[in-house]
Simulated assay, not measured.
Amino acid sequence: MTFVEPIILRGRGVRLEPLALEHEAGIAAAAADGELWKLRVTSVPEPQDTRAYIETALKMREEGSRFAFAVIDEATGRVLGSTSYHDILPAVRRVEIGWTWYARSVQRSHVNTTCKLLMMGHAFDTLQCHVVGWRTDNYNFASQKAIERLGAKKDGVIRGHALRRDGTIRDTVMYSMRSGEWPETRAQLLYLLGRHESA
């Protein structure tokens, strides 16, 4: 039995479903919304690499190290992006949330907050994780701010940690949240989403 079992998570018009080859066209279209593969600090696939991107995610799922989701608009069925549990460590009940990106047209909307609420809720409440982590490029300041807005704590920086798509070597900023911090975070995320809905 794997630690992260296939599941569909739903909330506020957003559906997270296990990433599959049938999502190839939708993933390519979402990435094209803003030509996101041109950003140095993201994992978004270039159009010709979309199938390989999905196949890699499926291989990592088989190995138990990553579980990728397609992010879907419930009303239209449109793929909005992708996000994953990764660096899954069942023995210590820890997962990280990452490989996250969204079409430019839904960035700064309720989509990311909703996805994080669903994934953190599943990790802490269903999988009974002790810790949820995040990691990001030291130059991805938008990602760092978004992670900090969730209430995650900065653990530190791993220097010279990974290759970027342009071949340069990045430092990785690490964050985490413990299960005892989740209730307060959940209340804050629900408050933020409530404000968005009433705006």
Results as ranks from 00 to 15, higher is better:
residue 132 V to M: 10
residue 187 A to N: 07
residue 114 T to I: 08
residue 70 A to T: 03
residue 180 G to V: 09
residue 100 T to D: 01
residue 99 W to S: 08
residue 182 W to M: 09
residue 174 M to E: 07
residue 141 F to D: 07
residue 40 R to E: 13
residue 69 F to P: 01
residue 65 S to Y: 03
residue 16 L to Q: 06
residue 186 R to P: 04
residue 91 A to E: 13
residue 147 I to A: 02
residue 128 Q to T: 00
residue 104 R to H: 14
residue 163 L to S: 04
residue 88 I to Q: 07
residue 135 R to M: 07
residue 77 G to L: 08
residue 153 K to F: 12
residue 73 D to L: 05
residue 42 T to C: 08
residue 47 P to N: 13
residue 75 A to Y: 04
residue 166 D to R: 13
residue 126 T to E: 13
residue 132 V to W: 10
residue 18 P to T: 08
residue 150 L to E: 03
residue 178 R to K: 12
residue 46 E to T: 01
residue 134 W to L: 01
residue 161 H to M: 04
residue 58 L to V: 00
residue 162 A to K: 06
residue 87 D to K: 09
residue 150 L to C: 09
residue 17 E to I: 01
residue 93 R to V: 06
residue 6 P to E: 11
residue 159 R to T: 10
residue 136 T to W: 05
residue 168 T to V: 12
residue 56 T to F: 11
residue 39 L to D: 11
residue 130 H to S: 08
residue 162 A to T: 07
residue 44 V to A: 09
residue 196 H to A: 05
residue 118 L to C: 11
residue 76 T to L: 14
residue 79 V to P: 03
residue 191 Y to N: 01
residue 9 L to Y: 09
residue 189 L to W: 02
residue 193 L to G: 06
residue 178 R to W: 13
residue 191 Y to K: 12
residue 191 Y to H: 12
residue 20 A to T: 09
residue 106 V to D: 06
residue 50 T to H: 11
residue 55 E to F: 00
residue 61 R to I: 05
residue 117 L to A: 10
residue 98 G to L: 07
residue 166 D to A: 15
residue 3 F to K: 00
residue 3 F to N: 01
residue 189 L to V: 02
residue 160 G to V: 02
residue 6 P to Q: 09
residue 167 G to K: 04
residue 138 N to D: 15
residue 51 R to Q: 13
residue 66 R to H: 11
residue 128 Q to E: 13
residue 123 A to M: 05
residue 173 V to P: 05
residue 93 R to E: 15
residue 157 V to F: 13
residue 60 M to E: 14
residue 120 M to Y: 06
residue 83 T to C: 15
residue 133 G to S: 15
residue 148 E to T: 15
residue 99 W to H: 09
residue 56 T to V: 07
residue 146 A to M: 07
residue 77 G to R: 01
residue 72 I to D: 06
residue 119 M to E: 15
residue 125 D to G: 08
residue 133 G to A: 15
residue 152 A to K: 03
residue 56 T to R: 15
residue 125 D to T: 00
residue 162 A to D: 10
residue 15 R to E: 15
residue 193 L to V: 08
residue 130 H to G: 12
residue 175 Y to G: 02
residue 122 H to P: 08
residue 60 M to P: 01
residue 1 M to I: 09
residue 96 E to T: 00
residue 86 H to D: 07
residue 195 R to W: 03
residue 134 W to K: 01
residue 28 A to K: 14
residue 50 T to L: 13
residue 33 D to G: 07
residue 32 A to N: 05
residue 19 L to C: 03
